[in-house]
Computed example of a mutant assay.
Amino acid sequence: MTRSVRPIPERRLRRPMGWNSWDCFGTTVTEGEVLVNATFMRDHMLPHGCDTVVVDIQWYEPTARAHGYNPDAPLPLDDHGRQLPAPDRFPSAADATGLGPLADRVHQLGLRFGLHIMRGIPRRAVAARLPAAGTGWTADEIADTGSTRVSVVGRTPTLLPIGHIGIRAERGERGADGVSALSSPEQISLLTLWLLSRSPLMMGGGDLPTSPQETIELLTNDEALDAPWRSRDSLEVLREKDLVLWTAREHRRTYPLRRRVLPCRQPQAGHRAARLHRCPQRRPRPGTVDPHRRDSRRPMPAGRPPRTRPLPLQPRTCEAGLTQAEV
């Protein structure tokens, strides 16, 4: 698959895009499943900006099971109380090599490797009074054993529950065929909202090789993906019943972004998740607020006329399930 719009911006200018193991494999994902999905991403999605593979929670739990957690699980720890990968699910981690070999293989595919970790000290390290690395203290001396609060390092973006999900996941509403229970129009609306808010686009673990082709096409829609990469100042400017109108700016141009919140016709393969129209930036009428001004939200001076006369919106429904409005 090749891009037909513009080159992908530098990595530091883009939100994370990729795959997370949670919504499909839950706490039981294996090294082989990670590599199969990473290889599929390299072959079909990397040219469109999807470049991150994340192994979710309990990669260190040798007795992990689908649809639940085991209390007081026998976690493998190193000499300093740090969790080690479950050897039955991550064989390359043998001999205390950790997830380094798996991360190296993902990097060789041209992808980035991510890991779900939780801040704190494992209870088993505290019980064993293991020494904390780089300190003269033991785990039981530095742990706050009276706290029950759980904190996650960093922030996990809300995952996109689409594709073939719920194979062994704790959660995940799906149909009889194992595919996400969201209809095609609902998936388009969901992704449109993610794009409007410039959210990280992390697919929540839908098994990529067995997901419908329509799902992959939705996640690799170059024209739709281009909007959050090159625009800023997203703002809702109109809401009338089931029609919502947002705008976003790219330098001196304005993108009107539209979505319809009611179900409509099923999209056909290849149709875009959002239609973007470039138009010259217009100044608001006197006495109204310019939503894109950085200095304030104060009204425009009454003596300064707009450059162009505002035109009425003429909405029409496109076949992708969204509503366009000619400006």
Rank of each mutant, 00 (worst) to 15 (best):
P306C: 13
P71G: 11
V36N: 12
P76A: 08
V150H: 07
D295K: 14
Q314T: 12
M300Q: 15
Q324N: 12
D56L: 05
I8C: 11
R307A: 14
G32E: 12
Y69T: 12
T52K: 07
L160P: 04
G49T: 10
W22F: 15
R14F: 11
S4K: 10
T215P: 01
D177C: 01
L191N: 02
T317C: 04
Q108D: 15
I167N: 02
L235D: 03
R249W: 03
H48K: 12
G321T: 03
W246P: 02
A133N: 05
Q83W: 08
L102C: 07
R265D: 11
Q314F: 12
D88R: 14
A176P: 04
H292K: 08
W22S: 13
L193C: 09
R258V: 11
T158V: 07
A273P: 00
P74C: 07
D78R: 07
A248P: 01
L109I: 00
R249I: 04
R252V: 04
N70S: 10
R307T: 15
D290E: 14
T138Y: 06
I57M: 12
I162W: 03
R259I: 13
R249L: 05
S183L: 04
P263K: 09
A227V: 11
E170M: 00
V237Q: 02
P62H: 06
L195A: 01
R105N: 12
L99T: 08
A125I: 05
V327P: 14
G166Q: 05
R282K: 14
R82F: 11
Q58M: 10
R258P: 03
E214P: 00
V126G: 08
R316P: 00
G303V: 11
L109N: 06
L225V: 07
A132P: 02
R258T: 10
R297M: 09
H116N: 15
Q83N: 08
A143L: 03
H80P: 06
M1R: 13
V54G: 01
E223K: 13
L115D: 14
S183W: 03
M203W: 02
E141Q: 12
Q58K: 05
R293V: 00
G49D: 11
D88F: 00
G136W: 00
